[in-house]
C-alpha cells in the first residue's frame, strides 16, 4: 500500500475530502494502471483527468501524429504538431502530474499486440475511432478479463458503455458486427466538435475512477446515448446475450485477423 506524502496530500486535498475517495481511494488510484487506446478527441480528456486524479500508471497507445485538424478537439497536444500522439500525450502527463508513471506506445493496437498490451493493465479505455479497433479491444478485453470503458462519438452525438467481461453486456451484445465499411460516416467525413469528445471522454474517466475506487454506479448493462445538440439523453438497457458472438455461449477463444476486417463478423465453427 502506498502512503501519501505531504505534497500528495496537498495535490489531492480536494478529492481526499470526498467520503467515497479519502486516503484509501487515493491510494487505490495511485496503485491503478489504465491503458488508454487512442490519444485523440476522447483520449485527450480521459488522459488529462486520469492523470490529474493521480492514476499511478497510464499507458497510451496511438500510432498517429498530431496534425492541425486535430487541435479543435484534441486538447492535450499543444505545440506538438507532427509528434506521435502517444508521445505528445505522455509529455502532457509528465508536466501535469509527476506522480503518474506513463508509458507511450507509439503504434496502433493490432491483433498481434492487443492481448499483450491489455494484459499489463487493470482497465482499458476505448478512445479509438474505427469499428475494427473497437471490436478488437472488446474481444481482447473479454479474453483477458479486463474491464473496458467504451465510448464513440459523431458530430454532437455519442455513446458510452462500461463492460465487465463475462459479467455484463459487451460491445458485441450491443452491436454484434460492424456496419459495412462506408455505410456509417466517420468524424473525418461527418465532423465532430470538441465539446462532444470532451463530454464523453470525461464520462469515461469518471467510469474508470469509479471502477478503481469501487464506488457508485457504472454504465454496465446499459448504454447512454446523448444528442448534445438537442440535450436528448437516452439511457438504454443492453442485456448480455446468450448468442453474443464474443461473450455468449459460443464465446470467442482467440483473436483472428479475419474478425477485424469489413463487418468484423466472428464466424463460429
Amino acid at each position: 500500500m502506498v502512503k501519501l506524502d505531504r505534497s500528495q496530500i496537498r495535490r489531492y486535498a480536494r478529492q481526499l475530502l470526498i467520503p467515497e475517495i479519502g486516503g484509501r481511494g487515493q491510494e487505490k488510484l495511485l496503485e491503478a494502471s489504465v491503458l488508454v487506446v487512442g490519444a485523440g478527441g476522447l483520449g485527450s480528456p480521459v488522459i488529462q483527468y486520469l492523470a490529474a486524479a493521480g492514476v499511478g500508471m497510464i499507458g497510451i497507445a496511438d500510432g498517429d501524429e498530431v496534425d492541425e485538424t486535430n487541435l479543435q478537439r484534441q486538447t492535450i497536444h499543444a505545440g506538438n504538431l507532427g509528434m506521435n500522439k502517444a508521445e505528445s500525450a505522455a509529455q502532457f502527463v509528465e508536466k501535469l502530474n509527476p506522480d503518474v508513471k506513463v508509458e507511450a506506445y507509439p503504434f496502433s493496437v493490432t491483433v498481434e499486440n492487443a492481448r499483450d498490451l491489455v494484459r499489463r493493465y487493470d482497465i482499458v479505455v476505448d478512445c479509438t475511432d474505427t469499428f475494427p479497433a473497437r471490436f478488437l479491444l472488446n474481444d481482447a478485453c473479454l479474453l483477458e478479463s479486463t474491464p473496458l470503458v467504451h465510448s464513440a462519438v459523431l458530430r454532437f452525438e455519442g455513446q458510452i458503455m462500461t463492460i465487465i467481461p463475462h459479467e455484463t453486456a459487451c460491445y458485441r451484445c450491443f452491436l454484434p458486427e460492424a456496419p459495412p465499411p462506408g455505410s456509417v460516416p466517420t468524424c473525418r467525413e461527418a465532423g465532430v466538435i470538441g465539446v462532444t469528445t470532451g463530454f464523453f471522454g470525461v464520462l469515461q474517466a469518471n467510469e474508470v475512477i469509479k471502477l478503481i475506487i469501487s464506488k457508485g454506479e457504472l454504465f454496465t448493462n446499459k448504454l447512454l446515448y446523448v444528442d448534445l445538440l438537442h440535450n436528448d439523453f437516452n439511457l438504454i438497457e443492453i442485456s448480455k446475450h446468450p448468442s453474443c458472438p464474443a461473450c455468449g455461449e459460443r464465446r470467442i477463444k482467440e483473436l483472428r485477423s479475419e474478425y477485424y476486417v469489413e463487418t468484423c463478423r466472428i464466424e463460429t465453427d
Binding site: L16, G22, G23
Partner: peptide
Amino acid sequence: PFTFIETKLKLEE
C-alpha cells in the same frame, strides 16, 4: 483544510 485532511487520513488507518 490540511488539518482535517490529515486527521481524516489518520482515522482511516
